[in-house]
Design a protein around this nucleic acid. Structure first.
Lengths: 361, 361
DNA sequence: TATAATGCTTAAAACGTTTCAATTGAACTT
DNA sequence: AAGTTCAATTGAAACGTTTTAAGCATTATA
C-alpha cells in the first residue's frame, strides 16, 4: 500500500538534550542545569534554554535519567493472582485506588503487575525489581508462606506487605486485625442467640483467611461452644464459593443456623443459595460478611459486615514505601494495624432502623 | 547536602553485565549475546555465562536495555480522572482487567496513570509518553473534545482510544454503539407502554454520555413522542447523581413514569430515591441501566440493563495497540465496535422468572 | 604451501541523561 | 600590575545495555 509515508521512523525524531544544547548555543551540561533551575546558571541563559526546549518540545528522557540516577521513580504493585481474579475482587480495586492516589501525588509512576498464574508467583515479585524496573514494590495479598517474600526480605529492595506478617516483625507491613475483627463478627451472631454458626473461609494459605478462621474459632470457644468441623468450608473469597459452600452446609443433617462468611462476595453467594433453598436470609438465617465493599451496602438485604479501610491500606502502604525509599535506615519495626468496625445492616436479622444503622445489645 | 554519595547503597550492589563478564572471563559483548542465546556463541561459553549469571543473580537492567533499544516495553493506561473516581467505577476495573491480561501475557509492563484532577488532564497523556516512559498509551474514557487527543493524534506516538471517536476515523479506537444501545434500552421501556420516560445522563462532554442521550432522544422521536427537556438531568455516572436526579424528577408536577439511566450506578441511585419516595422500582416504576457491571446482577431488583463487553474492550484495545507498535504503517482506519445487548432482569418490571435469584454461573 | 572459509570472540560506539572538577573571563583587591 | 574572587559555563565521565564491524585462530580448499 502507500507505505511511502514514513518508511519506518514515524517522522519526527524526539528532541534530545543535545538538540536543545545545539539550538541554544550552550553545552548539554548547561541545558541539564538550566532545566532543573540550578542557581548557578545565569537567568538569561535559563530563559533561553527554556524557550528553545519549549520550541523543540523537549522532555528529558525518563530512561536516560533513570540510568544515570540509578533510580526509576516508579514503584510496582504486584498482586499474585491472575488479573481476572484480581480485578474481580472489589477489595483490590479499593486498595489500588489508595496506592494510586498517593503515588500520583508524589510524581511516582505506578507499575501494575499481576502474576499470570499462582504457580508462577515466583517471577512477579523479583522480576520487575531485579530488572530495575521499579525502585520498590507493594505486595498485595500474598500467601503467607510465599517463598518469595522471604527472599525479598533478604534482598536490599524496599517493599511493603499489605496484610499482617507476624512471621517476621521486621517486614514492613500494613494490615488489620483479621482475627479480632472476625471475633467481633461472630460475637454479633452469638448475640443474636445462635450457636450453630458456620463459616465459609477464604483460601487458608493466605493469612487473612487463616486469621479470620482463627477468630471464628476463638469466638466460639470463648462462648463455650465446641467447634464443629462440619460447619466449616474452605472457599476462595469468591461468590461462587459462597454459593457452593452454603448449599453444602444446608444439606447437613443438622444444618447451621447462621453464617460468618470470610468476605462480602462469599456472603452474597451464600445468600443466593439460601434464597434458592427457600430460606430467607436475615431474620431467618443471619449472615455476616467481611470487608464492606460497595456491594455490601447495595445488595438486598444490606450486608452486616466488618468494615476494613481498604483504600487507607493502600495509602499507608504507599506512604510507608516512600519513607523506606528515602530513609533506607528506617528499616526498623514498621508494621501498622488499621482499625476496623462492625457495620450492622439487615443480613444479620437486625431490625432495620431508618437512616441505616441498627444495633443489637 | 553531602549525603548523596555512598550512603544510599543498602548493601549489595546489583551485579551488572560487566561483573558477569569479568567473572566468566569473557567480554560484555559475549555475555549479552550469550544471554540472548545467540547462535554464534559457542555452547560451552553460553553455559559458562549462564552459570556465572545465575550465581551472581544477574538480571539485565531494563533501563539500560530500554536506553539502547529506544523502547521501554511498557505501555501506559491513562484515565483522565482522579484515581478515586476511576476505581469507583466498576467499569474501569473491568476494562483494566482486560488490558492487564493481554499485556502481562505479552510480557509488557503496565503503567497506570490517573490524572490528578480533570483540570490537569492535559499533563497525563503526554507526560509519560514524551518522557519516554512508555511506548504507547491506551486512553480510557477521555472527554470528546479533550485537546490532548488531537495533539496526541498529531504526534508519532501510538495510542488507542477506548470509546467511539467519530471526530476522526483515523484515530484507532475500540468502542461500542452507545447510541443504538441506548435506543434499545428506551425501546424496552416503550414496549412496556410508557411514554413519560426520563433520562439521567452521564457527563455530556464525554461522547459515551452524549451518545446515550442522543439514543434516548431518537427512540422517543421515532416513537412519535416529543422530547420533554424537563425529563432530562445531566449527571456524572455516579450513584449520587442517580439519587439526586430521581428526587428532582419526582418533584415535577407531572413526574415521569419510567427511567433510562446512563449507567448502572446511576440506576442504583435512582432506585434508592424511588424507594425513599415510597415508589416501588420495577413494576411500578421501571428503570433501565447501562453497562451491566457485577452490581447489576446482585442488586435488588436485578437491573435490566445494556451489557457492554467491558473486559473485551480492554483486551481489544491492548491488542490493537500492540499491533500498532509492531507495524507502524498499520495506522489506517482501525476503529472497532463491539456488540452489546439488553439483559432483562426485574428493574424494568418484566415478570420475574421463577427460580429467580440469579444463580451463580 | 598459500589462500579461503569457518567459528568464536571482542572492542567500540551509541542510547540520553546528570554531576562535578576544571576552565574561563571579568570584576574586584592590594 | 599582579594577584585574588567570583559567577557562569563546559568537558568528560559514568550509568548498563545491545549491536556490529573487525579480529583471530583454526580448518578446509586449491
Amino acid at each position: 500500500m502507500s507505505n511511502s509515508r514514513g518508511v519506518s521512523a514515524a517522522g519526527h525524531k524526539r528532541a534530545t538534550i543535545r538538540d536543545v544544547a545545539r539550538a541554544a548555543g550552550v553545552s548539554i551540561g548547561t541545558v541539564s542545569l538550566a532545566m532543573s533551575d540550578n542557581p548557578s546558571v545565569a537567568e538569561a541563559t535559563k530563559e533561553k534554554v527554556r524557550q528553545v526546549a519549549a520550541t523543540l518540545s523537549y522532555r528529558p528522557s525518563a530512561v536516560g535519567r533513570a540510568l544515570q540516577a540509578r533510580r526509576t521513580n516508579a514503584i510496582g504493585v504486584v498482586v499474585p493472582h491472575s488479573s481476572h481474579h484480581v480485578f474481580g475482587h472489589l477489595y483490590f480495586m479499593e486498595v489500588l485506588s489508595g496506592v494510586s492516589e498517593v503515588l500520583n501525588q508524589a510524581g511516582l509512576t505506578l507499575v501494575l503487575s499481576t502474576a499470570p498464574t499462582e504457580s508462577e508467583e515466583e517471577s512477579a515479585y523479583l522480576k520487575i525489581l531485579r530488572s530495575q524496573q521499579v525502585d520498590g514494590v507493594i505486595l498485595a495479598s500474598a500467601a503467607l508462606h510465599d517463598k518469595n517474600v522471604a527472599q525479598l526480605k533478604g534482598s536490599p529492595y524496599p517493599f511493603v506487605f499489605i496484610g499482617r506478617y507476624p512471621l517476621d516483625p521486621e517486614v514492613p507491613a500494613v494490615g488489620i486485625d483479621d482475627m479480632g475483627s472476625a471475633r467481633e463478627a461472630v460475637w454479633h451472631l452469638l448475640a443474636h442467640g445462635h450457636t450453630r454458626i458456620a463459616h465459609i473461609s477464604g483460601p487458608l494459605r493466605h493469612l487473612s483467611a487463616a486469621d479470620r478462621y482463627a477468630g471464628y474459632v476463638q469466638a466460639l470457644t470463648n462462648a463455650g461452644i465446641k467447634l464443629r468441623e462440619a460447619y466449616v468450608r474452605e472457599g476462595d473469597y469468591s461468590e461462587q464459593a459462597g454459593w457452593a459452600g452454603m448449599r453444602s452446609l444446608l444439606s447437613l443433617d443438622e444444618p447451621p443456623t447462621a453464617l460468618f462468611a470470610a468476605n462480602d462476595e462469599t456472603a452474597v453467594g451464600a445468600i443466593s443459595a439460601l434464597r434458592a433453598a427457600g430460606i430467607q436470609p436475615g431474620k431467618e438465617f443471619p449472615v455476616v460478611g467481611f470487608d464492606d465493599v460497595v456491594l455490601a451496602r447495595l445488595v438486598t438485604p444490606g450486608l452486616t459486615t466488618i468494615r476494613q479501610p481498604m483504600q487507607m491500606l493502600g495509602v499507608e502502604a504507599a506512604q510507608l514505601l516512600m519513607r523506606l525509599l528515602t530513609e533506607p535506615q528506617a528499616h526498623g519495626v514498621v508494621q501498622t494495624e488499621l482499625r476496623t468496625h462492625l457495620v450492622v445492616r439487615e443480613s444479620c436479622g437486625c431490625a432495620r432502623v431508618e437512616g441505616g444503622e441498627a444495633a443489637v445489645t
